[in-house]
Amino acid sequence: MTTSVVHTSRRPSSLAERPEHSADSPLSIHAMTVAYQRKPVLWDVDYDAPPRALVAIVGPNGAGKSTLIKAALGLVPRATGLVEFWGVPFKHVRERVAYVPQRESVDWTFPVSALDVVCMGRYRRIGWFRPVGQAHKRAAMACLDRVGLADLAHRQISQLSGGQQQRVFLARALAQEADLYIMDEPFAGVDAATERTIVQLLKDLRDAGKSAIVVHHDLQTVTQYFDHALLLNMRVVAAGPVEQVFTPDNLQKTYGGRLTLLSEAAEAVARAGINVR
């Protein structure tokens, strides 16, 4: 092992020095601590996401995966820490970042159609006060088509299945034409067809030079779907290319003594044919 692939959470020894990739990295987090009430949920997280890659955030329940992305986007207040997207604060690059929240976060009986929801992804482009024009509607329609829901564009969203709702959210993110897609558990409770669609889309995005950071809970599929992984358990346990990070040893660190999960993961590693040293 020549270089340490295990991400070091150590601060650079020269105190004022900035971590290296800041300007290139779609998301860099420095010394971020997030606390609900008395207890910190994330402690001193340092992370630089690689550009043009699919990154999975993996960790046990309560490890702070969703909190990490919410705090990065400013939806949850940070106790300390600096978050930058391509080396600048979020507010300067809002249109380059698309966020896909968890499906349960909205009221699906709301009186809007699938197309309306997708159009919301373009509101930033359209700007204040102006109505949604035909060109934007066409763009939104194209995004719905990419997730295979063009036929259902005018359905009210409550009449869609769970997987279709997730795909609508995905289409909305696509409609933002962002460079970075941040997704919170997009695979949770979706059908096989939707899962395939999401994976294909992620690969297409990466091939188009975009990045995606995805909170993921299914250890079995991490190695198949993603290039990089961030193992999180209140702080960064390991980060790097999946085949190097996603080792039984690191999983032991992330998941501790959870034997069932561990055996599951070992199986996944074996199935993916990764050479474990």
Partner: peptide, 22 residues
Amino acid sequence: NHRLWEQYLRTHADAAPGHVDW
């Protein structure tokens, strides 16, 4: 302390975050 906590998170993560008090 912090290193020990880190180590704890790595080896005893099943019980972890709730117990950790940095």
